[in-house]
Amino acid sequence: MTTVSIFEDARFPLGPFVPYEGNPILRPKGDSWESANLYNPAALVVDDEVVLLYRAHAEDIVSHIGIARSRDGLHFEREDAPILSPEHDYERYGCEDPRIVFIDGTYYLTYTGWDRRAAQLCLATSTDLRDWTKHGPLFEDFDTFKTVDPRGHTWSKAGVIVPFRIDGLWWMYFGEGAIYWATSEDLIHWTPGTSDDEPMYSPTPGSFDADLVEIGTSPVLTDTGLLVMLTNGATRTVLDDGTVEVDYRCGQIAIDPAEPTKVLARLQEPWLRPQTFEDLHGLVSNVTFVEGLVKFQGRWFAYYGQSDTTLAVAVADPRVGFGVRAGG
């Protein structure tokens, strides 16, 4: 059976989150497939351990997905070989940015297949986190940037699956640029709820997500019945020399399952922003990018990438109110 966790101490917004003083918790290593950059992890709890499925690559910038485990949520042991690697044309330059959910004995992993032109949201399934069946791109001919900054071709990323049915269907929230929704009868085949010119949530002018929004983490079901998801938002600044500087910060949204196509509320200020050296310097600088969230040993652990180069965590104790926004 599907197990749905209702977190009795979860409210909107979640937090405050405080970046761990020992960050980064994972760095690139050696001269292997993860020698250059390591970031953007999915997270889940399995057998009293936190499991991270993270993106990493060597200097060739061809991403694979690796796995690491921890008994305290802070110190991780990683396996030498990736668990998911490029095989097909649509992902030949990378399997990127995973999100994961566990339903009825099966892990459903969404990730981005990258061919250096189109980014496509893809799906893979497994019963053991080792042997994966790839189901290919989910939303061909869909551009989630269409109302923001059109790509002119297929582009979709960032899918999070709700771990229970709503009105008899499975639901997914997805999108980079703007956010959309889709439904499924079998968790494998997904149909967008609208065309790509009708997002359910768009960037907010004048805010920290003025130029793009992207779904971050899988939903948390609060004791009030709301779905809360962490998000990523970005602003772009054109400098005097014509180069573009980006700044990625983390937000939150709340959705009422009774009206699953509407964002009920959004966090007005980011709960995390670039501050440390690793947040501010890297392959893509000025980035805090959240993709993993778990409740573990009584605390929330939010895992995020730092400037597409290292991996960090911010921790929240639910006994502490949201009086002060972590991240300044």
Rank of each mutant, 00 (worst) to 15 (best):
E259T: 14
P274V: 04
S285T: 09
L293V: 11
V294A: 01
L280A: 11
P270V: 01
Q275A: 15
A254V: 05
C250T: 12
D279F: 00
T288L: 07
A258T: 15
P260R: 04
Y303M: 02
H281C: 10
S285A: 14
W300D: 06
K262I: 14
L283Q: 10
A258H: 10
Q268F: 01
G298F: 00
Q275I: 14
Y303K: 01
S285K: 12
E259Q: 13
A258C: 10
Q275E: 15
E259A: 14
V244C: 11
V290H: 02
H281L: 04
R299S: 11
W271N: 12
D247N: 15
F289G: 10
T261G: 15
Q252R: 05
Q275H: 07
L293F: 06
Q297R: 15
E269P: 00
F301L: 13
E278G: 04
T261N: 14
Q297E: 14
Q297G: 13
D279H: 04
F296Y: 09
D256C: 11
A258Q: 12
F301C: 11
C250A: 15
G251V: 05
L293G: 06
D247A: 10
L267A: 09
E245H: 11
E269V: 08
L293Q: 01
I255S: 13
L283K: 08
F277N: 13
R273N: 12
P260W: 01
L267N: 04
